Simulated assay, not measured.
Amino acid sequence: MADAEKTLLPKLEFFCSTGISRMDLARTLSYDPALLKISLQNRIIPAYNYLKSLLLSEDKVMKILKNKPWIFLENLSKNVVPNIELLRELGMPPSGIALLLAHAPNIVMKKHELFSEIVGEVKELGFEPMKSSFVSAIRVLSGKKTIWSRSSEAYRKWGWSEDDILSAFKLNPMCMTNSEKKIMETMEFLVNKMGWPSASIAKYPTVVCLSLEGRIIPRCSVVKVLFSKGLMVEENFSLASVLCPAEKPFLERFVIRYLDQIPQLSNVYKRKVDIHDIDD
């Protein structure tokens, strides 16, 4: 049985020194009590310092400790260190490595041979290690093959070819992680209710990742009103110009500038007024 004062107390004190709250620490240790069995000096502190050198933030290391503590149980020199070194050799900047480590530390824990294969596949597809999309592609291709198959099948139902799917993946890898329900509902709305060609959506796959209720429908409702009033006849707009901009630029272009003509337009955007209730 562990000597509480000699072995457990120093570990608890160290974990608390990282900034994790006592409540979160209690949850973490109850979820993975093996953290109290490994060596503080030989495993926990070296792992913490290594992660901190990569993440450049104590807060980010604390979040990993709180949410994905199993990386501290790993012998980092076996897979994690070689995997990180591979990314460095390819030219991935510290920000990219930190991004992958912060959001998916389980991926850098994969066996080095498997990790190398995934990274090689991402590179062959034309992704550049200097860009964040390289990290996103690693995350997607590290996932279950069934997820890719499910997403591909959903897009094919809307007429996308294999080239369309691959092109969309290259533009935004995360479009291949959406659920079938999310893909089908978004495509149904954009194609059947808004009239955008399915092939054009393949050119802007980011839109499939956006919230249907929180972003797509409110913005498209505004566009429908503007069309019904004949105010966008000469507007040079596209799917991307409506759905991709941040909120402020969208509001300035499509809402604020038309409030004199359509005072209720702001409420249409906020979904407080149905487009059919706008006065003619």
Rank of each mutant, 00 (worst) to 15 (best):
H103P: 05
T18L: 08
S179I: 07
W158Q: 02
K110A: 12
L9V: 14
S53I: 06
L9I: 13
A246G: 09
S136T: 12
M232Y: 13
I256A: 13
G126D: 00
P69N: 06
L86I: 08
E13A: 12
I38M: 02
T177F: 08
A154M: 08
A2S: 13
P197S: 01
S167M: 14
L239Y: 02
E128N: 15
A240E: 07
L76K: 02
L231E: 11
L259R: 15
S95G: 07
P263D: 02
I71A: 07
V207Q: 08
N42D: 15
L90R: 03
F189C: 08
S21G: 05
E85V: 14
L86C: 05
E13C: 03
Y258F: 11
E234C: 12
I97K: 09
E247M: 11
R215V: 15
Y204E: 13
V268Y: 07
R43T: 13
L36H: 01
G214F: 09
K182F: 12
S200A: 11
V122H: 00
K60Q: 14
D3E: 06
L171P: 06
L35P: 00
K145D: 11
F189I: 08
R43A: 10
I278C: 06
E121W: 05
I165L: 04
S21R: 04
V140T: 01
N236M: 11
S57I: 10
I118G: 03
F15I: 01
R253Q: 03
V223A: 12
K248G: 06
M109H: 07
R271A: 14
S238C: 04
V61S: 08
K52S: 13
F254G: 00
D260E: 08
F254A: 01
C209M: 10
L166P: 05
Q264S: 15
M184A: 13
P245C: 01
Y48H: 07
K63W: 13
R219V: 10
S142W: 02
A47I: 02
L171T: 11
R215F: 08
T18N: 00
K229Y: 13
Y50K: 10
P205R: 03
D277W: 09
L29I: 06
Y50L: 12
E153R: 15
D32C: 15
I38L: 02
L226S: 06
L101Y: 09
L190T: 05
E74R: 10
F237Q: 05
N67W: 10
W196D: 04
W158E: 00
P82R: 05
K110H: 13
L231K: 07
M23E: 15
